Computed example of a mutant assay.
Amino acid sequence: MRRLLFLNGIKAFEAAARSGSFAAAGSELNVSAAAVSRLVHLLEERLGVALFERKANRLALTSAGRAYQSGLTPIFDALASLTAQVTASAGTRVLTIGVGPTFAMRWLIPRLADFRKEQPDIEVRITTGGAAAPFADDWSCGIKLGSGEWPDLVAEPLFAADLQPVCAPRLASQLKRPADLRGPNLLRVAHAAEDWPLWLKAAGASRLTARGPEFQFYGQALQAAADGLGVAMGIRPYIDDDIAAGRLVAPFSLSVPKGMRWYLVYRSFRTSQRDFAAFRRWIIQAASRPAGRGKASKVRQMAD
């Protein structure tokens, strides 16, 4: 017979361990912080082991508490997912993907028609919170730029995030070497201030400083570059389709790693869900294929 100990106490402990405080756990569970504290204390008494070290201004998990929480959180995640599946309308199959707005517009959305052809019964919902947005519990998966280290998430690499300047074809004809670049014409992205210095240093042009218009997202800067406003620092895979179609040109062949990669991220229990498994197979295959064929721009070799 399965022995389940004090589920209310287990829920209170998991919420407090995950959030880091009784107050936050109480807010999540719609009870007071004192109630959470009592439930956790009762759970510790029943288990016969301390789960928290109570410190003056914070909670600290004991080694037993860390082990217990690391096993409980995936169980509660799986339970929430199973409940959502059971209570969903008959025939409704929903896949929610968390992704930044530029990645959605520049890569994912143009390819979703292919996924729909393969899986017409799956409803895809895209939520755009930005690359720095925390992974939401109701996401089936996310696509994030980073180091690949996210606690409690599986991260599978999709693309290298390489940097390469791009601009409109007319402007590219004026750029023979990196020294031809001009600071006021170098378009910037607010959250990626390190991109231009990184590439310029590798190109031997570190004396240059990007002083052009600043945009919130890569997509805005790339659109401005296509419209002839200046030279944007492109990041893969954002620029691949535009280069293949001739909308943008990479005037120099030098491509510099950003030091991060794009990853498909998800909770481990998702691998057993057929809709997510289908999307995972599709996106890994799609990421391995070259950009769409079109009027490819000629990439000029960088002069010494």
Rank of each mutant, 00 (worst) to 15 (best):
R3W: 08
L4Q: 14
G9L: 06
A12P: 06
F13V: 03
E14R: 06
A16D: 05
S19Q: 12
S21G: 13
S21P: 08
A25L: 07
L29G: 05
S32L: 04
R38Q: 12
V40D: 01
L43V: 06
E44M: 08
E45M: 10
L47T: 04
G48Q: 08
A50D: 15
F52C: 03
E53R: 12
R54P: 01
T62M: 09
A64K: 02
R66P: 03
R66D: 13
P74C: 08
I75L: 15
F76D: 05
A78E: 15
A78S: 14
L82F: 10
L82I: 11
L82K: 12
Q85Y: 00
T92E: 15
V94W: 00
T96W: 01
W107K: 06
W107T: 06
L108V: 10
L108F: 05
L108H: 05
P110R: 07
R111V: 05
R111W: 01
A113D: 14
D114R: 11
R116V: 11
V124I: 15
I126A: 03
I126N: 05
I126M: 12
T127N: 06
T128G: 02
T128Q: 14
A136K: 10
D138R: 08
S140A: 12
G142E: 05
I143G: 00
I143E: 02
S147H: 09
E149M: 10
W150I: 15
V154P: 01
A155V: 07
P157K: 07
F159C: 08
Q164S: 11
P165A: 03
V166R: 02
S173H: 11
K176T: 14
R177S: 15
R177G: 09
P178N: 11
L186H: 02
H191P: 03
W196L: 06
G204S: 12
S206C: 10
R207F: 07
R207K: 11
G212E: 06
F217N: 05
Y218G: 02
A225Q: 06
G228P: 09
L229I: 08
G234M: 03
D240R: 07
A244R: 09
A244Y: 00
A245G: 06
G246I: 09
G246W: 00
R247Y: 02
A250T: 04
A250H: 03
A250E: 05
P251S: 10
S253K: 08
S253V: 02
L254R: 10
V256T: 12
P257W: 07
K258T: 11
G259Q: 12
W262S: 04
V265H: 01
Y266G: 02
R267D: 08
S268A: 14
R270N: 04
R270Q: 15
T271E: 15
R274V: 09
D275P: 01
A277H: 01
A278P: 05
A278T: 01
R281I: 07
W282E: 07
I283M: 05
A291D: 10
K295T: 15
V299I: 15
R300G: 06
M302N: 02
M302A: 13
M302V: 13
A303I: 10
A303V: 13
